[in-house]
């Protein structure tokens, strides 16, 4: 880890102001916000992240650490801990996919530290990104190439890839937010704004180093998740190589609004298989208005992976991702929802 300067502003205004000041001097200032630290510190130790200025946001937990499940929407402060949200009875009852995606992520220690805002911004687990001795990584060094293309890539993405990057988006919570059409509240040197969660992450395309649409110095302050007809019939299915403390090989966040066996509305987001949190609109369309059967679930699952492109070691993720989605859909349909 390289030496850095550290500050701990006492409010959101002060933090944004401090970052704004640095960026005004140098638009490419090597400065980073620090929230729970579970991604940034890790990457600094690996010499991947090399900030010279670290702005610690832990004082913001007081003003932005809330968990408010309401009748019409769930509001989550960006500095709420993963563990607090996962264990909140109101979230478990009325927004189950949110609680499950958080409970199934990481380890108890990490869930006790990691903030929600940091969680959705976590960086990929690609081995070649995380080891700077590999010169070729377009995420780390734009234009340098992609070592993962010819390397060990079982864990890599099959959806949303480009010839420049195949790194998987590793998180779980983001899929739940995407499926439930969440909105982000952002703050930064230029002021506040809202952003649909689905517009946060950017496909790698030719610019894998640009992972989000956040403006320089901007940070997430709040998540707003609307309560809709399908919110309570929702779940997160995570398939992984061991029972706990492991990233998804494939996952599915699904939410269904059923009329008997007929799908009125479906929301599907896939994890572990794509470069960004992946909304499967085609699969949702394939379900809408039809009776949910095993066959229909397969059709939707095939649709979700129609554009998949396998690498050397991860072709199985297409079959697995389809199986996971199908299993999640049937499981969601069988949930008993109290009135």
């Amino acid at each position: 880890m390289r030496s850095f300067q550290y500050s701990r502003p006492s409010s959101l205004t002060a933090a944004a102001g401090e970052m704004g000041g640095l960026l005004a001097q140098d638009p490419d200032a090597p400065a980073a916000y620090l929230a729970g630290g579970t991604t940034l510190l890790d990457l600094m130790k690996l010499d991947v992240a090399r900030p010279e200025r670290v702005i610690d946001l832990s004082a913001l937990r007081g003003e932005l650490g809330h968990v408010h499940p309401g009748a019409t929407e769930l509001r989550l402060g960006a500095f709420a801990r993963m563990a607090e949200v996962a264990a909140h009875p109101g979230v478990i009852a009325d927004y189950p996919v949110i609680a499950q995606s958080l409970a199934l992520a990481a380890s108890a220690q990490l869930r006790n530290m990691a903030s929600l805002g940091g969680n959705v911004l976590q960086r990929t687990r690609c081995s070649y990104f995380r080891d700077p001795s590999w010169a070729a990584c377009n995420k780390r060094t734009p234009g340098s190439g992609c070592a993962a293309l010819g390397g060990v890539n079982r864990a890599h993405a099959v959806l949303g890839t480009s010839e420049h990057c195949i790194a998987t988006y590793p998180g779980d919570f983001a899929q739940a937010l995407l499926a439930l059409d969440a909105t982000l509240v952002l703050a930064g040197p230029q002021g506040s704004r809202t952003l649909p969660f689905g517009s946060l992450h950017q496909l790698p395309a030719a610019t894998p180093h640009r992972e989000t649409t956040l403006l320089p110095g901007e940070l997430i302050t709040e998540f707003v998740i609307p309560a809709r007809a399908w919110t309570r019939r929702s779940l997160y299915l995570k398939v992984r190589d061991r029972e706990s403390y492991e990233f998804a090989v494939a996952s599915a966040a699904v939410a269904l609004d059923l009329d008997g066996d007929v799908v009125r509305e479906a929301r599907i987001a896939l994890g572990g298989v794509a470069t960004i949190p992946w909304r499967a609109h085609g699969a949702e369309d394939a379900l809408r208005g039809l009776t949910l059967t095993e066959t229909l679930a397969w059709t939707a699952a095939e649709n979700a992976f129609a554009a998949a492109r396998p690498q050397t070691h991860n072709a199985f993720k297409i079959d697995l991702g389809q199986a996971a989605l199908m299993r999640a859909l049937l499981q969601a349909a069988s949930l008993e929802i109290r009135p």
């Binding site: 687990r125 081995s127 070649y128 080891d131 010819g150 190589d241 706990s244 403390y245 492991e246």
Partner: peptide, 21 residues
């Protein structure tokens, strides 16, 4: 396969059973 680098040389990526297993 290019240089015999171990690409999962850490306890996050080199999996061992956890309690839940």
């Amino acid at each position: 396969q290019r240089n015999a680098a171990y690409t999962n040389a850490n306890l996050a990526d080199y999996l061992v059973p956890v309690h839940a297993d």
